[in-house]
């Protein structure tokens, strides 16, 4: 479904990605873990063409999106749903309008059908009754759920999650993870998720990729990552202060 090959990206002389290569299979939910500021969000933004690489390719269903622009790129983007780190909800819209927005703008569905789908999505994320609230009036956890509902409303083939649980309490974190696995099962999308939630992420993702110093250090099933003998991976998943990862 997605194939990243030898992706390089620098910002003003600082190299963030040094040759990332990763394949994501159809309907797979893969989590990318790694240090803060290590380039995970930068990598995710390349998958939808929000950033262009210095070198390398990103193939989505066999088409290299790094060379696409305009309508051709938009055609690929229509396959995606994105849950941004802070939710990226439109603050002048209500919860209902935020979720309905992609359907109103991208489809010609009748009002009644849009209404039904938004209500269903709200029920899926447990936010029934919150339709008329504005993003400023709801909690961080609710915002993430609204963002998830908005990302899924068009039933995209691929969903990108940029740290969907950052800043949430443990209960809400579990609730969001459960929501992601439930919706993944229900809609059958291909998912790429950036996360810091160790060990919780091992119960959510099919595979884990560890990004370290601009390259994918290790990819494997949660079990393979957990039992890895790689000292960098071991230090990261244990959260140890001692090891090859230097704390800046």
């Amino acid at each position: 479904m997605i194939k990243i090959a030898d992706l390089h990206r620098s910002f003003g002389g600082q190299t963030v990605l040094r040759g990332v290569s990763l394949s994501v299979a159809d309907k797979e939910l893969i989590a990318i873990i790694g240090e803060s500021g290590g380039g995970k969000s930068v990598l995710l933004r390349h998958l939808i063409g929000l950033l262009k690489p210095d070198r390398g390719t990103v193939q989505v269903e066999g088409e290299d999106i790094t060379t696409l622009t305009g309508r051709k790129l938009d055609r690929i983007r229509e396959k995606f749903g994105v849950v941004f780190q802070g939710g990226a909800l439109f603050d002048s819209f209500t919860v209902y309008d935020n979720i309905a927005f992609p359907l109103k703008e991208k489809t010609k569905l009748p009002k009644q059908e849009i209404h039904e789908r938004v209500e269903e999505a709200l029920e899926d994320v447990g936010l029934k009754g919150m339709e008329s609230k504005y993003p400023a009036e709801i909690s961080g956890g609710m915002k993430k759920r609204v963002a998830l509902a908005r990302a899924l409303i068009t039933e995209p083939k691929i969903v990108l999650f940029d740290e969907p649980t950052t800043g949430l309490d443990p209960i809400m974190l579990h609730a969001i993870h459960k929501l992601i696995t439930d919706t993944h099962r229900k809609y059958g999308f291909t998912g790429v998720m950036i996360s810091h939630d160790i060990p919780e992420i091992f119960h959510v993702a099919d595979r884990i990729a560890f990004l370290y110093r601009g390259v994918i250090e290790l990819v494997g099933t949660p079990r393979e990552i957990r039992t890895s003998s790689d000292p960098v991976v071991r230090q990261f998943i244990r959260g140890s202060l001692r090891g090859p990862i230097e704390i800046v």
């Binding site: 933004r45 939808i48 929000l50 938009d74 055609r75 983007r77 229509e78 995606f80 994105v82 941004f84 780190q85 802070g86 990226a88 909800l89 439109f90 603050d91 927005f101 992609p102 703008e105 991208k106």
Partner: peptide, 13 residues
């Protein structure tokens, strides 16, 4: 800065 513009772009709008 709150990624709302990126959200529009990501929706192919």
């Amino acid at each position: 800065i709150s990624e709302q513009i990126d959200a529009l772009t990501a929706m192919a709008l």
